[in-house]
């Protein structure tokens, strides 16, 4: 019995979940993509493809052990992130990028901290602080809700009830 369990544990690296989600966030000059299954497990070694607005592939790579993949912010306005995991799971997300602000050189000339630089510093630290919260929020939002579950059961009984209603009126079941 122990052996059987051991075999189970060794071979069960594929995931049999039904949905993959991605969470993207920006930190400094990089965009991070985090892939996870609907129960919260990370998508390890999953293929990530990034397309620009002309549908050309600009970046390709694989997620690491934590399901995270990062790349430098590309020179595009809109990018599409596609994640492909085992067993036919695929998800995609489109994000819009803002144009990169200002050039660093101006700041060096001024030698004092300009408003733009302060803005950049503040933005970066806010991004860092807010990302974990955003991530939790996204996870919660994408979870199946109890109202949906109960609603779904209601639909099933309702739809079959309608079926039954129409059959009930036909002569078929009166036999």
């Amino acid at each position: 019995m122990k052996k059987i369990i051991f075999i189970f544990l060794t071979f069960s690296s594929l995931s049999f979940c039904h949905k993959v989600n991605i969470f993207t966030y920006k930190e400094g000059d990089k965009i991070f993509v985090e892939g996870y299954f609907s129960d919260g497990k990370p998508c390890k070694n999953s293929l990530i493809e990034i397309y620009n607005e002309k549908k050309e592939k600009i970046v390709e790579g694989k997620t690491d052990e934590n399901g995270i993949f990062s790349f430098n912010i590309p020179d595009a306005q809109k990018i599409k992130i596609v994640l492909i995991a085992d067993m036919g799971h695929k998800t995609e997300e489109e994000i819009e990028l803002e144009k990169k602000i200002e050039k660093r050189q101006d700041l060096i000339v001024e030698k004092i901290i300009s408003g733009d630089e302060i803005k950049k510093i503040v933005e970066e630290s806010v991004e860092k602080a807010i990302n974990p919260i955003l991530k939790e929020f996204e996870r919660e939002r994408k979870k199946a809700k109890i109202t949906d579950i109960i609603g779904g059961i209601g639909y099933i009984f309702g739809i079959l009830g309608i079926f039954l209603y129409f059959r009930g009126r036909s002569s078929e079941w009166k036999k």
Partner: peptide
Amino acid sequence: DYPKVSLLTSAFFVASLIHIPIGPTSTH
């Protein structure tokens, strides 16, 4: 058959939401 079918459809519908964590993977 209708009550039976509705019941099993509901069971099937909900079953996919039940995760069983075993080892490194988790399944439903």
